[in-house]
Computed example of a mutant assay.
Amino acid sequence: MALPRKITLWEAGPRDGLQNEPGVVPTEVKVELIDRLADCGLTHIEATSFVSPKWVPQMGDHEAVMAQMKRRPGVIYQVLTPNMKGYEGARAAGAEAIGIFAAASESFSKKNINCSIDESIERFRPVVEAAKRDGVKVRGFVSVVVGCPFEGDIAPAQTARVTRQLYDLGCDDIGLGDTIGVGTPGKVKAMIEACAKLVPVEKLGGHFHDTYGQALANTLAALECGIARHDASVAGLGGCPYAPGATGNVATEDVVYMLDGMGIETGVDLKKLVQTAWWISDRLGRPPASSVARALKSKCL
């Protein structure tokens, strides 16, 4: 399949990127990060998560983040909503796009959201129905699509089955997440090909973590399968509190640098993105995980 000429980048830094930080990131830093990312040209930003602070304390300020961020016209600000209570809170805060999470592994589903895969789909059904009624966009995610920290390798057919369940539920698109970063291009292609037999490829997105240094290669493999929606996280921020050993997402600036070099349009200003990567990294007290951010520091700062 020909490579996409233009792709949509979903910036995951403010939510997926920050959720596993050991210290609580101040609300004003989260808000400024969101605003800076929008200023870089990113049009799809995962802003926060309406989960119980008991389970993910880092996201306990979701209402304040939604109230304080500047809503730029043309930018979609998505929030995670694991259940109806989360959805109602998100709507009260003005959310116009939500995300729901399933898993390709029964063990991970039980560890992450305390229910089986099929139970999770039924739990999300009223959330999706409410969102459709309210005109809210719904993005589904499938975690551990090629490998699980508890079950090992995941068969492509199993990931495809769960992906189809989310599609049938009414999700507008579905992100395929290599949550623990064990994927390689061959495994990723096999997984995407299985999913594309059951769900239109234009509804699928890539979400790759860089635990084994394979995230950029896996992004390219997904592009070669025709995937034109990709998640990435500024400075390579990220991790999952329920996935032992998972490290950060593929860095947004690494993806943009690669795509710029391939002539694939993103609409993102790389210089501003590198500046933002160093800005948030300085506030977290460590350098960016991104190779591009480190390489371009002297040219962009």
Rank of each mutant, 00 (worst) to 15 (best):
151 E>H: 11
151 E>S: 12
152 G>A: 11
152 G>R: 06
153 D>K: 15
153 D>F: 12
154 I>R: 13
154 I>H: 08
154 I>L: 13
155 A>P: 02
159 T>P: 01
162 V>Q: 06
162 V>L: 06
162 V>H: 05
162 V>N: 07
164 R>I: 06
166 L>M: 10
166 L>I: 06
166 L>G: 07
169 L>N: 10
169 L>G: 02
170 G>A: 09
173 D>K: 11
177 G>Y: 01
177 G>E: 02
177 G>H: 08
180 I>V: 15
181 G>V: 08
181 G>M: 09
182 V>R: 13
183 G>I: 09
183 G>R: 07
188 V>A: 05
189 K>T: 15
189 K>G: 12
190 A>P: 12
190 A>T: 11
190 A>C: 12
190 A>Y: 07
191 M>W: 04
192 I>T: 12
193 E>T: 13
194 A>W: 10
196 A>D: 07
197 K>L: 14
200 P>S: 10
201 V>A: 14
202 E>A: 13
204 L>Q: 05
209 H>V: 00
210 D>T: 06
211 T>L: 09
212 Y>S: 13
215 A>F: 05
216 L>V: 06
220 L>N: 08
223 L>Y: 01
224 E>W: 06
224 E>N: 13
225 C>N: 08
226 G>P: 09
227 I>V: 15
229 R>D: 11
231 D>T: 01
231 D>S: 04
234 V>R: 03
234 V>P: 00
237 L>I: 10
238 G>R: 09
239 G>P: 12
239 G>E: 09
239 G>F: 05
240 C>F: 09
244 P>K: 10
245 G>H: 12
246 A>G: 10
247 T>C: 04
248 G>N: 08
250 V>Q: 03
254 D>A: 02
254 D>I: 02
255 V>N: 00
255 V>T: 01
256 V>K: 00
257 Y>N: 10
257 Y>D: 02
258 M>R: 09
259 L>C: 05
259 L>Y: 00
259 L>M: 02
262 M>S: 02
263 G>M: 03
265 E>R: 13
266 T>H: 03
270 L>N: 01
271 K>Y: 02
271 K>Q: 14
273 L>R: 00
278 W>M: 04
278 W>E: 03
279 W>V: 00
279 W>M: 05
280 I>N: 04
280 I>K: 01
